[in-house]
Amino acid sequence: MQGSIRQMIKDKKEKQQSRSKIVEKIVPGILLICAIISVLTTLGIVFTLIVETITFFSQVSVIEYFTSKDWYPFFESDPDYGIWPLISGTLLITGIAMLVAVPFGLGAAIYLSEYATDRVRRIIKPILEVLAGIPTIVYGFFALTFVTPVLQNVIPSLPVFNALSPGIVVGIMIIPMIASLSEDAMSSVPNAIREGALGLGATRFEVAVKVVLPAALSGIIASVVLAISRAIGETMIVTVAGGATPKLTLDVTESIQTMTSYIVQVSLGDAGFGTTIYYSIYAVGMTLFLFTLIMNLVAQYISRRFREEY
């Protein structure tokens, strides 16, 4: 009797073990497939962009794309495909956005990390998170229906669609990003360094600007570069409030078009599959992708290369 129970336990154990052995072997494979999907996504993006861009360049010359100063794809008789107006529109928006986001974001980061008490920080940080979580279409609505009319009071000649209003709003949108990433960088500067400077008689402002800021500089620059990348890829705000007239201009009061808003314009219109216009969104998308990729790589390089270790 005793022996048979022992036997039963042994049998059961073996059965369980053989089953769990199979599971143990299969599971890592399934999980690996999950992990590979993210790699496939990247490959899919690169592959899609490259293939369709090549099709585009079989219909439009590469030289025209990089040298022509006009972007008029909708002229049926003589369309022009020069990327520069779209790039200048994108950079104009990005420039305005940075002029707003860097001072306000950095100011908020300095205040939160160097001046604010714990209680104030606990109130303000969630508010910044809320600001970061608002969908971009809401910001677009805000730019068109509030910021533009307000600006028109100051500049009466400002048209409904212009670069200034969406630029400012994109800047507001990325303030939380710069603020929280820079604050992280500044809070990771050890307190001993701060106290050393304070002990020598420095004021809080001097500590912030002459000690903490330089020590956290790599993190701060990385946050700004990431923010630039975000601004370049921003779509809905500029689509709603920026207009649809590609123009090689630095005048912020004019209607412009960015790379992203061109892609949206085409996808909303009725340019059929297989037309040159259809393929052009991939060429523009490729250009956009390269811009943001370079920015992201630069940010990673800066934060790795120039990080101060304490």
């Binding site: 993210s38 993006i45 990348s229 890829g233 921003e234 779509t235 992708f289």
Partner: peptide
């Protein structure tokens, strides 16, 4: 790859999906 994917503009994902 994952951290780079997080930085790709959403509209590019739209092109991929299309």
């Amino acid at each position: 790859n994952i951290s780079n994917l997080a930085g790709v503009p959403s509209i590019v994902f739209g092109l991929l999906g299309l």
